[in-house]
Amino acid sequence: MKVGKRRKVNKQTRNRYIWAYIFILPQFIVFFGLSLYPIIMSYVYSFYDWTGIGPLNKFVGFSNYISVFKEEKFWNAFKNTFIYTAGFTMVSVSAALVLALILNNPKLKGIGIYRTIYFLPVVTTTAIIGIIMKNIFGNQGLINEALKIIGVIDQAVPWLINPVTAMIVLIIVGSWKEIGIIMIYWLTGLQMIPRELYEAAHIDGAGYWQTLRHITLPLLAPIGATIILLTTVSSMHVFDLVKTLTGGGPYYSTETLELYIYRFAFASDGISQVGYASTVGVILGLTVFIISLGLGWVVMRVNKSRADAGVQG
């Protein structure tokens, strides 16, 4: 990759450089022309006391930040976001791995149909899923009725009324929705493992489980770290599902940061505080940034140790 810096650039190479700049230009224009201004502005708002309408003229410095940190409900939402993220990442990443291991077998018939089935929730609008699931987990919903018929329970379980079960339901439904796409990531990783390695293992007389333990899983580690990073980052922004499934309840016990932000940015009663909401948005953004830096460091370490071990993907 290293190119001599002082090397004389001939005409053809210069031509290539010019074309490269031309290729990048449109993306550049679209990004700086359309995205930068809105992004910068939401940072600017966080330093203002602003309701969303009227002139932007009450500069308050860091006072929004100070009041955010003093707010009990903010920390509650912060905590809930972490609980959800941790639970969601664990459940969805591991379940998707199991699914991917099964669906990676090219000899399995109907593989396309299975993949489509398990991918289906991914393509559905989350808000609709929330409404459906709310009914399914309701007091007289499908789950309770089914459990009653089987005889596991005789009183309906208040799934969405109890703070602990409400969070569990949220994590399960959230995972169900996203497992399809995470499965695809894992399948990608599985396809990158050279077939010869399996064949060699087979010749050495290794069984399925041994191969899995000693070849498949270690080789999946690097992409696994990346998948965890992507999943964590996206799940910290969970919103639609919480809004439609639990509405943050019971009594704020499933309210996540995005929901908290929404409550202030678009207050249904009372007065919107776009300034305050933007502040929480910036804090969430920074948190995600720090977490991804940490996870990114882990990803690099895993990749490096793999390279050190001399295994090539």
Binding site: I39, M41, S42, V233, G285
Partner: peptide
């Protein structure tokens, strides 16, 4: 350019639609 693009992935996007609309 590559470093910039990588960093962009984690920059929080806007929380209000107003600037986009105005633009």
């Amino acid at each position: 350019v590559i470093v910039c693009i990588g960093a962009l992935m984690f920059i929080p996007s806007g929380y209000t639609i107003i600037p986009l609309y105005q633009f």
